[in-house]
Computed example of a mutant assay.
Amino acid sequence: MNWVEMDIYTTTEGIEAVTGSLLGMGINGFVIKDAKDFQDFLDDKDGNWDYIDDDLMGLKNCETTVTVYLPENAQGLENLEAMKLELKALKKRDVNNEFGRLEYELKNVKEEDWANNWKQYFKPLCVGEKLLIKPSWEKVAEGEKRKILEIDPASSFGTGQHNTTQLCLELVEKNLHEGDRILDLGCGSGILSIGALLLGAESATAVDVDENSVKIAKENAEKNHISAEKYTAYCGNIIDDKALVEQIGTGYDLLCANIVADVLIGMSGIFGGFIKDGGTLIVSGIIDQRKDEVLDRLKAEGFELIEIREKEDWVAASFRK
């Protein structure tokens, strides 16, 4: 397998925030270069060394960098898109500009080439008992009985290939009732809310902090012959935008959120205001190591745990309000 090197530029103070985001996405391996850390090494009087290579000495003046290696395939591209959204979110939270420029650089491949070449990995995929997910350039067999969800993620997270998306769609299918109103927080490509509409939901509202994701979600809804009256999409952050929260409204039958653990925890106190009594909350995007932390937080907010599903290192769960 080929790998793509992603360098994320930050500061000493930003290392914990950046690596925390990576860990929340299930990326457990990374390399950190930090001038302060190297200076601490040089200042260590107990160090057992008498010579340092000139290349290594270059670390004295390096920009703090967190490096990860992503597989050159569809899942790697989804990880890239998720990390780009995380960097945008970190920039918004970094009001004191402590985390540096929070920009990234790819090595070994051009991003635009990768975004085109990965299409070879995106094939029709059956999820649950009723859905078949396919990109627009792939055909399906005549007489296919599953609901066809046509999705082109472009530069947004959500092809259906990732375990978190599959787990979430399975729980949506199980808990959805005909005529339900759906709220999709962190919608990405819109795959969850569009899938819910194809499965019988009456209407859906989708929200994402990334403007491009909102645009792509609307385009994907149109590709699946869903009218604008049934599909509404907003750009914004519900954690700190009270006007957006009011605009989204309340009384939803089912809320789904496929986001990293830290964001789910940050939103946990807001979920209940969107869902009607007896409604369903579905969360995904949780790495196994943080399962208990997220689920306990939601239970503390008054949600009743109904079901947990796991696939490889990822966890999704459904709750009742």
Rank of each mutant, 00 (worst) to 15 (best):
E301V: 02
K276F: 11
A317L: 01
A115C: 08
V172R: 01
P135N: 15
G186Q: 02
E310T: 12
E13V: 13
E293Y: 11
E219S: 12
K291A: 07
G26V: 09
K92Y: 03
E310H: 14
E63C: 09
K130S: 15
K45M: 14
I15K: 01
S203M: 10
R309T: 15
T65A: 05
I306T: 14
H177F: 14
L132M: 14
F41C: 11
W3I: 12
D277L: 15
V95C: 07
K311P: 04
N163D: 15
L264D: 09
L298P: 11
N237P: 03
D262S: 12
L281Y: 13
D40Q: 15
I282W: 07
K215D: 15
G14Q: 01
G58L: 10
D34H: 05
M1E: 07
G302D: 10
N48D: 09
S21W: 07
I238D: 03
N116L: 09
S203F: 08
E98P: 04
K215I: 01
D180W: 02
M25W: 13
M25Y: 07
N117R: 13
R146P: 02
K321D: 05
I287H: 13
E293P: 02
K230A: 10
W137N: 12
R297P: 06
G158W: 03
K276S: 05
M57N: 08
S227W: 00
F271D: 00
Y252M: 05
S136C: 10
I282Q: 08
L264P: 05
K223T: 03
A196K: 02
D253C: 15
I265C: 06
T164V: 04
D277R: 10
I216A: 06
E103K: 08
V294A: 04
L131C: 01
E293W: 14
I238N: 03
N61S: 08
Q247I: 02
S268D: 06
